[in-house]
Design a protein around this nucleic acid. Structure first.
Lengths: 216, 216
DNA sequence: CAACGTGGATAGTGGAGCTATCTGCTATCG
DNA sequence: CGATAGCAGATAGCTCCACTATCCACGTTG
């Protein structure tokens, strides 16, 4: 198919597809002459993937490129791709400094040690956690810090199922792709569900029913 | 204190503070003359809060303003503030269309009904969930859809603890503020922990140890 | 063979989040 | 009292991002 069809099949405007091609998010089509090219199903799929990461996952274009490069890399082991991905999926939280940050850093290392998690205490996710804990302390809400244990329980539960689900009877390609999709869309779903569950928990506590009620 | 001290106490540059004042993220200082103003501890606190939401929570300036307006509103009930907040905390996922979206929409309503959650099936979080599910279907990864049940279990667990923790022996002001902080920073922590747990689960599966090892 | 469509290159757009400059005014120190 | 340094506020500018619009020469198609 040509670009116009690629566009209509995915709902992405032609100029945007050109932009993605320039940015290396989409591999070039098969050229039939110096200024004509054909695209196939793999392009459709890739383009949907890009849109999913950009629209639902709110990734930057640069992050999408990096992630997809990792997906395409030969010799890919899910474990490595996972690391690459996490390094790129950002957001990167700026390093803070001060006693509060050091305490938070210690808390995180301690948490990983205590739970026996085989995880890098210097990777971006760990830094995010440190930043969040330090910020809690800075805001004087140390009372909220022990929530992290509950979150860790939940994360452990979820991650186990995630991994077994993504790995089950699939070729390597599907596993890697599933890891990307699962990580990004999974986060969206988890956050959304937590907020919905907050509505429920708060509604029960205060005796209000927002479900099905009129909007406002 | 004057603006320079407010700046040094929080690490936020003076021009940025001025910008936040213009944008209404920070209430104006108490004026002592047409071109002099004093700021107090409440400004320090507010500024830290703004930075927490912007840097750690990755909220837009507009979202921060909206959230803080809701926090400041009189007659605030945590339940209402929670709703306001969720409407503002975005990201808003664009409405999709087509059969896939309708199926996803049904799935979400079904999920809420089945679990008996008192939550609005048309609120932004529910829309996010629909978008994620529809996108999964669009990408042909319907195998990942039943993960949502596990996520819902985890969300239920987490939300219950969140709410009881935030509400425990606090004045209304602290509850509302805690809800904001807890929602935003909690999300950061949960995502970070899930990624760390993924590292662990993948490392165990493939027999690799990334913890404490050399970087790369 | 003529008109519309195409791929590629280049430049422009609009929004977000600051940042720099300018202009009076003011606190303060000698 | 007066020089000087700092202050608040207004305005304009900057950089980055994600597109979007315009050109152009060539190609496909009726």
């Amino acid at each position: 198919m040509r670009m116009a069809e690629l566009s209509s099949r995915t709902g992405v405007p032609v100029p945007t597809i050109k932009y993605y091609l320039r940015e290396g998010l989409l591999p070039p089509g098969e050229r039939t002459s110096p200024n004509q090219a054909l695209y196939d199903e793999s392009h459709v799929r890739r383009l949907k993937m890009v849109r999913a990461l950009v629209e639902v996952g709110k990734l930057s274009i640069a992050a999408v490129r990096d992630v997809l490069d990792a997906v395409d890399a030969p010799e890919k082991i899910p474990f490595n791709v996972l690391g690459e991905m996490q390094d790129r999926l950002g957001p990167i939280h700026p390093e803070g400094s001060g006693e509060l940050w050091e305490q938070a850093d210690t808390q995180v290392r301690e948490l990983l040690r205590r739970r026996g998690w085989l995880a890098d205490p210097d990777c971006p996710p760990a830094r995010s956690l440190v930043a969040a804990l330090a910020t809690l302390a800075e805001l004087g809400r140390t009372d909220l810090i022990d929530l992290v244990e509950v979150y860790a329980d939940a994360a452990e539960l979820v991650a186990k199922v995630d991994v077994t689900k993504v790995v089950r009877d699939q070729g390597m390609d599907d596993v890697v792709e599933g890891a990307v999709i699962g990580t990004v869309l999974g986060e969206t779903m988890i956050i959304a569900l937590r907020r919905l569950a907050h509505q429920d928990a708060t509604a029960r506590l205060y005796g209000v029913d927002r479900s099905g009620g009129d909007d406002e």
